[in-house]
């Protein structure tokens, strides 16, 4: 223990409005704390920059899983255990269930929240690649002008990160909801994490992928070099952890694979094109856990494994 708990303030405002009011009053003074599985580690290590915390873990307004016909709405306080236990998520968004199961240990999944995971903004976090390929949106809330008024803004999750450990979240804002479309029942889903061990591991790299494979000739193609053929990729989304300073979508690789053929005769060319595009947008680093060379190579292998899996 390298911090003295008496040197830290922590309160639990009675309502969401009260939390937002305090955040708005002195922006940047308070750190919201939910499950504590990140911040308490930083506290023990003496790494906490600020000394005042607002507990939000007790707020029922932030812990919900709402299923509508078109989307699944997750409150920021939804724990990884909540995610894992939800059968609709498991059926519709299997990658999210999988990613939740890989996040820390059971004991930490019981506390850690999806909102905390996203706001911590680690490039190695487990759920972002899944949320990126599922094209999630995030709703951020803050105090409005009128007393008790809450204003919100919603933006694509892919635009949430600005830089290393930095998000668009203003100091007066809280992440409220993560919304994911229920639109992937006919897609192929893929997620693989490569960590330091099988459990309790921070990823060295991870790749999530979502694709729609079509057997019929493509009607449109903005890539004239691609010859639409019997089996090809109709749409594809790719996202990765630990390949950049933040969780990323692999747009260039996606573009290179749009309408790409999966026919045996063309597969090698498709793989070559995918790897070449991937190389332009994977920019990992050497750190204590792995090397840039390894991360790039393994993520490319995972991409190839996914593409090969689409051929059958």
């Amino acid at each position: 223990m390298r911090s003295d708990p008496t040197q830290f303030a922590l309160t639990a405002p009675a309502s969401l409005q009260a939390v937002l009011a305090q955040l708005a009053q002195n922006p940047g003074t308070h750190i919201p704390i939910a499950g504590g599985t990140e911040l308490m580690v930083a506290l023990a290590a003496g790494r906490l920059p600020r000394h005042s915390f607002l507990s939000i873990s007790h707020l029922p307004e932030l812990r919900f899983i709402r299923i509508t016909p078109d989307a699944i709405h997750l409150g920021a306080n939804t724990t990884f255990t909540d995610i894992r236990r939800n059968p609709t998520i498991a059926a519709d968004l299997p990658l999210l269930t999988l990613a939740a199961s890989w996040t820390g240990s059971i004991a930490n999944q019981n506390r850690a929240t999806l909102g905390g995971n996203l706001c911590n903004a680690s490039p190695a976090a487990d759920t972002p690649p899944a949320l990126l390929v599922y094209d999630a949106t995030v709703t951020l809330i803050s105090s409005g002008a009128a007393p008790g008024e809450i204003v919100q803004r919603t933006l694509p999750y892919r635009d949430f990160y600005l830089a290393y450990k930095s998000t668009v979240l203003r100091p007066d804002e809280l992440l409220h909801t993560i919304t994911i479309p229920r639109a992937y029942s006919v897609h192929r889903h893929f997620l693989r994490k490569v960590g330091t061990r099988n459990a309790q591991a921070i990823s060295k790299t991870a790749l999530a992928a979502l694709a729609l494979v079509s057997e019929s000739p493509a009607t449109t193609s903005d890539s004239p070099s691609t010859t639409p053929c019997a089996r090809h990729i109709q749409t594809i989304r790719l996202a990765a952890a630990s390949l950049a300073d933040r969780p990323i979508r692999l747009y260039a690789t996606e573009a290179a694979l749009q309408n790409a053929s999966l026919a045996p005769a063309h597969l090698d060319a498709t793989l070559r094109r995918a790897r070449a595009a991937f190389a332009t947008e994977a920019h990992p680093i050497d750190d204590i856990r792995s090397t840039a060379r390894y991360r790039t190579a393994v993520a490319a292998n995972l991409l190839e494994d996914f593409l090969r899996s689409l051929t059958t």
Binding site: L10, T11, T37, S55, A107, N108, N110, R111
Partner: peptide
């Protein structure tokens, strides 16, 4: 158990207030 049933947690990561 904070209201939704007993769950396994690591007590080193929980502030007393929570």
């Amino acid at each position: 158990d904070t209201g939704s049933g007993p769950e396994l947690v690591n007590s080193c990561l929980i502030p007393a207030l929570q």
